[in-house]
Design a protein around this nucleic acid. Structure first.
Lengths: 238, 238
DNA sequence: TAGACTATTTTGTATAGACATTTTAGCAAA
DNA sequence: TTTGCTAAAATGTCTATACAAAATAGTCTA
């Protein structure tokens, strides 16, 4: 590079490093403009420009008479996350395990054939698992998988690799559809989730495609008081 | 207000008006810094500040040696259409209308200040609406809007333009975050939605950004038996 | 005619200084 | 103890100027 980095960008990088390394936690007061200007040997206006940009970008918060502080914002979840429950639990520092209730090959009935896009009576893999966070059930997963695309699905040790991970490993996931609703569950489901039948639950139906191929149809039930679904969408062009 | 609007903000407003009114279409070249400075009787640096901010916010695009141009935005994403409750209802061939329960300016308390990213005590717009599909309530919308980015919000006729549409019209929506959970609602909310307090409901918290600016914080409550949330994600690269 | 040079326009970065506004802290007066 | 004043610290806005870098249009030259 013939042209060196502008000095205000150098200052920004310095500040971002402090913020992103965690050396400056949320609400930490950063050096005042005059000090920054002195440290970097620039005028106050240049330090101001550097800070101003970071404020607009949401990293810093300023208040006249008080100072400039690191913005307190929650960790943003990855944008197009394939939503792996095991990783999610572990990222909270908790233990993850699951119980496999069902692991079978079935003939697709009306509903499954329709939802999975296969012929009536086709052989389809079916699993039913309860996922635990620290011994508390947080999800009941009922999943139907098209054997054509993930032939080894049923042989998986699901405590080593979640159903989701098996799919991701087997084929590139290109499309995901979610249908979410709130409902009450039947007695059997309630028992598996260790809740009663008056607890509102989050039902999530997830269909997963690889290219034009419908790979898997899953129905996930979360006890309402133990789970929140978070999603972010970012459009870089707008 | 004893303190007049800073001149660089006056310039920004002038430019935004030209852009949002359509007088300056996409790719239109705006007056050069020197001209703007002369028109508003300010120094070039002040005009530069005004333009610089709008570039960061995505309204303008600059190129050294060429000029400053109105950013060419892509057509609105289906994401927004899907989440526009009025269009959704009408697309089902049903009638849509809403009741405005609250329409006010409030001082941001702890929670609102945190969630909307504004200073404690800042003035914030607040509206509370019930959305109907064929005279059946399907959503209670509690929304807080940052007045800085959508100054005319409170004057809207919400039966002609939903809150969501007002935001989309006011600024380019670049990021949306949803947090979804299942829960039971209090007696007042239940009454508004014409349900009882044992009906599981879908709670959706939606935060909307334009660039790095947090525009709006909304809490949407749907009766569980009357609504399903549908979302699709497509990853072209995978 | 193709290529090199030049001038012009416009944005990009940077400076040093000035004054205004906001907030807090400390001190003095009621 | 409460109130009010003042000083300070810090950000907010603004100016006038300077030079650098990028793109373009025009001109001169080989």
């Amino acid at each position: 590079m013939a042209t060196p980095l502008p000095r205000y960008l150098q200052i920004q990088h310095h500040l971002l490093e402090k913020i992103q390394s965690g050396e400056w936690p949320a609400n930490h007061q950063i050096p005042v403009e005059e000090q920054l200007a002195k440290d970097f040997g620039v005028s106050r206006m240049t330090a101001n420009k550097a800070i101003r940009d970071l404020v607009q970008q949401g990293y810093l918060t300023r208040q006249a008479g008080l100072g400039t502080f690191v913005t307190d914002r929650k960790a943003e979840s990855p944008l197009l996350d394939v939503h792996n429950i095991a990783d999610e639990v572990r990222s909270r520092g908790h233990d993850y395990h699951n119980d496999v209730l069902t692991r079978e090959v079935i003939a697709a009935d009306d509903e499954i054939a329709l939802r999975l896009g296969v012929r009536l009576g086709s052989q389809v893999f079916h699993t039913c698992l309860v996922h635990y966070e620290n011994d508390t059930p947080i999800q009941l997963e009922n999943r139907y998988v098209n054997p054509r695309w993930v032939p080894g699905y049923l042989e998986t040790d699901f405590n080593r690799q979640t159903p989701n991970e098996v799919l991701v490993a087997a084929c590139p996931i290109s499309d995901i559809e979610h249908i979410v609703e709130a409902l009450l569950v039947d007695a059997e489901t309630a028992e598996w989730l260790a809740i009663d039948t008056t607890t509102p639950c989050l039902s999530m139906i997830r269909r997963t495609w690889s290219g034009e191929q419908l790979i898997s149809y899953a129905r996930l039930i979360h006890p309402g008081d133990r789970y929140k679904l978070r999603s972010s969408v970012h459009r870089p062009d707008a």
